[in-house]
Computed example of a mutant assay.
Amino acid sequence: MSQTITDPPRPVEIRLAKDRRTLIVVFDDGASFELSAELLRVTSPSAEVQGHSESERKTIGGKRNVGILSVDPVGNYAIRLGFDDMHTTGIFAWTFLHELGRDASRLFQAYLDDLAAKGLDRDTPGVR
C-alpha cells in the first residue's frame, strides 16, 4: 500500500503591514492570514519563549503594542522576525506560520487565559 505524501503549504507572499503590527502571509494552498505582531511575539518558537519542554514555556505580558522591525529569510523553510522589544531569536517555519494562522483565534484566547491565570496583562511587561 503506498501513501501519498503532500508537500506542506509554502508562502507565495509575505508582507509586513505599514503599521508594522501585522504580518500578511499568503500560502500556495490558497490560505491567507493576517497575523498580529503580538500573537507572533508571544508564540515565538524560540527557546526563550517555548523553553525546552512544556513546563518551561513562558507566558509573556505587555506585548499589545509590539511591532515587527524586520522579516528575514532563513533558507527556503522559514523567516526570522525581529521585534521592537529586541526579540530576534524565533525562527518561524512555513508549517508553524500556517498552523498559527489557521489556529490564531484559539491560540490568542489561550494566551489571554494564560495571562489572566498568571496575573499578567497585555499592557504591563511581565513573564511567568
Rank of each mutant, 00 (worst) to 15 (best):
G90Q: 00
L120F: 10
R122N: 11
V42A: 02
G126K: 14
R102K: 15
V66A: 10
F108G: 06
I5W: 09
T22S: 01
F92G: 03
E48P: 01
D113C: 02
V71A: 01
E34L: 02
P11K: 04
I91Y: 13
S36G: 01
G30M: 08
P45T: 10
D29K: 06
V49H: 08
R102E: 15
R21E: 13
D113A: 04
V12W: 05
G82L: 14
V25K: 03
T124S: 15
V127P: 11
H52W: 15
T59V: 15
D72I: 08
R106A: 11
P11N: 08
Y77P: 09
S2P: 14
V74D: 15
R122Y: 11
Y77I: 06
F96L: 15
A17N: 08
S2W: 12
K18W: 12
R102H: 15
R57L: 10
A78L: 08
A17W: 14
D28E: 11
V71Q: 05
V74T: 10
M1F: 14
A116F: 11
S44M: 06
F83C: 08
A37S: 11
E54K: 04
I79C: 03
I60D: 05
E38K: 03
D113I: 11
P8W: 06
P73Y: 04
I60H: 03
H87N: 10
R128L: 12
I68S: 02
D114N: 02
G101C: 00
L35K: 04
A104R: 05
G51Q: 03
T88A: 01
E13W: 01
P45C: 08
L97E: 12
R80P: 13
S70D: 14
